[in-house]
């Protein structure tokens, strides 16, 4: 267990040292504070926007940004050390592959979690300071918690990529493709299905398909509780479906655990 934390501490301090933590936090904070203040600029007004508009905009932004950042943060975790030779060396140390992977996961996961907490927390604090609505705390807690889950899920997915390929450049390419699929293609595909099929697809199967994409689950979690006038598109249909918030969160957690287990399995089986 001690070695897990040794690895985690190193990964975390790596994130501090190469300014990952700092830059992600600043990006999140700038965007979220900006959206909080100017989210209604399109409507011709400035000043604080309503909580639901803010969270809706934040969620649509985070759903692109967080997976991308998580993938960029972690895609070279294993293939990078494989190329430099330290992975082989580490495996001769009294640490097994699962411990090494968990150490990296905890270390890099803490970076993204902390960045989300500070960056998005900032706009929550600003909103609360201006409006004193206690509702903001619950909405933002849910938003931050689900955003962290989304980040962790894509770190685990990045691990799978990093373990499966043999070159860093291939891992980078694969990470971008994966991001493209989950963030863009998947929803386009769903829309095509909705529009293109003759009778449309049932609400149930649509909801089920959305469960296949952690980014969509994240959207559902954060838009489900909101005033639906701020939400449009294919989501609105699914939102009125039967899944409860707890069920959605459970599926999101599964999207963290399942890729993580898959990554561990692949790593354990990997021929060194």
């Amino acid at each position: 267990m001690k070695s897990v934390f040794t690895v985690a501490a190193k990964e975390f301090s790596d994130g501090l040292r190469n300014r990952w933590l700092l830059s992600i936090t600043i990006i999140f904070a700038l965007l979220s504070v900006g959206l909080t203040y100017f989210g209604s600029a399109v409507a011709g007004e400035t000043g604080l926007t309503s909580t639901s508009t803010t969270v809706a905009s934040l969620a649509s932004l985070a759903v692109f940004l967080i997976p991308l950042i998580a993938l960029l943060l972690s895609y070279d975790s294993f293939v990078g050390e494989l190329e430099s030779g330290t992975l082989l060396l580490l495996l001769t140390y009294p640490i097994n592959k699962t411990q090494l992977l968990m150490g990296k996961f905890i270390g890099q996961g803490s970076i993204i979690a902390l960045a989300i907490l500070i960056g998005f927390g900032a706009s929550g604090v600003i909103l609360y300071a201006h409006t004193q609505q206690t509702e903001i705390i619950t909405v933002f807690s849910l938003f931050i918690a689900s955003a962290v889950m989304l980040g962790l899920s894509f770190i685990a997915i990045a691990f799978i990529i990093s373990i499966s390929v043999s070159e860093k450049s291939k891992a980078a390419g694969a990470a971008l493709i994966v991001w493209f699929i989950f963030a863009l293609i998947f929803d386009l595909g769903l829309l095509t299905l909705l529009v293109g099929t003759e009778d449309g697809i049932s609400q149930q199967s649509l909801t089920f398909m959305m469960m296949l994409n952690p980014a969509d689950i994240f959207r559902l979690v954060n838009l489900a509780g909101l005033d639906s006038t701020d939400v449009n598109g294919a989501l609105a249909i699914a939102i009125r479906s039967s899944l409860s918030l707890t069920q959605l969160l459970c599926v999101l957690v599964t999207w963290v655990i399942f890729p993580l287990i898959l990554a561990i399995t692949l790593f354990t089986k990997k021929r060194m």
């Binding site: 040292r17 430099s84 030779g85 330290t86 060396l89 001769t92």
Partner: peptide
């Protein structure tokens, strides 16, 4: 057991 791999490049930063 101590091991020195061939061509290892340690954490550069």
């Amino acid at each position: 057991v101590g091991y020195l791999p061939e061509n290892v490049s340690f954490y550069e930063h």
